[in-house]
Simulated assay, not measured.
Amino acid sequence: MKKLLTLIPAIYLTAWLGCGGGGTESFEQPSNGGNGDTNSSEQTNPEQGNTSKPAKDKGVIAYTPLTLSNPFFKVIGDHIKAEAEKNGYTVQMVDPDMDVKKQSDQIEDFIAKNVTAIVLVPCDRLSVGPAVQAANRAGIPVFTVDAKCAAENAKIEGHVGTDNFQGGELAGKAMIEALGDAGGKVLILDFKKANSCVLRVGGFKKVIDAHNKTATGKIEIVSELDGNGDRTKGYQSTADALQAHEDLNAIFAINDPSALGAYTAVKEANREDKIKIIGFDGQLDGKQAIKEGKIFADPIQHPDKMGRQIVQMIVKYQAGEKFEAETLIPATLYTKSEADNDPALK
């Protein structure tokens, strides 16, 4: 099949929206075995207790996330696989490793194999557009999970994700609580290539702006830097901000890995007692950091629900049934109070 000549050159990211990953593809073969351990806000085994015989094979659902190095996307994939097999489908799961060119090639391969449906977490919300358009022309429905595709003329049949704007609002409320009446200066570690992260920052700013209209102690966003959604860049950007702003009081990071990278920089600067950190996601290491006082709070996501619901959407699509084109799952705030009572933590 012809290569996608119109593809915008890939944006090579140095890490993933959770942590750095390897460069090899990972293929999930259909099976009824367990899925192994993963770090996520929901660590249920998606196949536990599923003793019913799968229905006759109805086709293949192909899944290409941002990266499988991030446990969050692996949890989504595991639940896609379990729900798909329950409904008579097999799953092909591949890892683009944050590379939009690789992801586009994977979609091209899915088209060549004439899969039943494609589930996508875009490595780049715009640059993946030509690959999605190619699937559209081939008559293969494309669905997105977690992050949307924002490319013009790229048709997405349905989306399941977190209500990231609402989650950002929770982060803003947590920041107000963390800083108290005094207010303070805040750094935002963003990731503008992902629409979900743009929404998180938007919700955060909305709450902070509303707070500042009446508060005596204002909260000032003094810097907004790229955290790339990973520990390394989160660390580097925070270290730079600490040098530029010696009176920094707090940090909002768009996910746990960048929040944990920020904490490392703050600790090296011996300012961990002065700077509060708000993360996002609810991965196991993020929750553990909240319990240990390294992170103040996290709006948490529910990747297990995302995986199940995107398959349920595909099943309805294939049956010609009506369904809501977009399902947003509300985030919930996770604080030290929840962490202290969380049996999954040490």
Rank of each mutant, 00 (worst) to 15 (best):
K86Q: 12
N255L: 04
I310H: 10
E108A: 15
N45S: 13
F323Y: 11
M175R: 06
G59E: 07
S31V: 01
D230S: 15
E169P: 06
T116G: 15
D78N: 14
C149H: 02
G229A: 01
F191C: 10
K193L: 14
L68N: 13
A10Y: 03
I176Q: 12
G227F: 04
L284H: 11
A325H: 11
K274D: 14
N341I: 03
L328F: 11
F280G: 02
Y12M: 10
G261S: 03
P65N: 01
G307S: 11
S196M: 01
E224C: 02
V315L: 00
K53I: 11
H245K: 09
D304R: 09
Q92L: 15
D304L: 11
M98Y: 11
E246P: 06
G286F: 00
C149N: 12
G167W: 01
F165M: 00
S26R: 13
T335I: 01
A344Q: 12
D97W: 10
Y334I: 05
L189H: 07
N212L: 01
R308P: 08
A55N: 13
T90H: 14
T216M: 02
K86W: 12
V100Q: 15
L4I: 15
G49F: 02
S52L: 08
I140D: 09
F191L: 13
L179I: 02
A10N: 11
R125F: 10
P330W: 04
K102G: 10
A319Q: 07
T335Q: 08
E338N: 14
K81F: 14
K205R: 07
G307E: 04
K155P: 11
E28F: 14
N136V: 02
I176G: 07
G23E: 13
A151C: 06
A55L: 15
N50M: 08
N153L: 08
K53S: 09
R200V: 04
P9L: 04
V160I: 11
E152K: 12
P130K: 06
S41L: 09
K185R: 08
I314S: 14
T144R: 03
A135R: 10
E42I: 14
S41W: 12
Q283K: 09
K53D: 01
K322H: 06
V94A: 13
D298A: 12
A82Q: 05
N136K: 05
Y235F: 14
L187W: 00
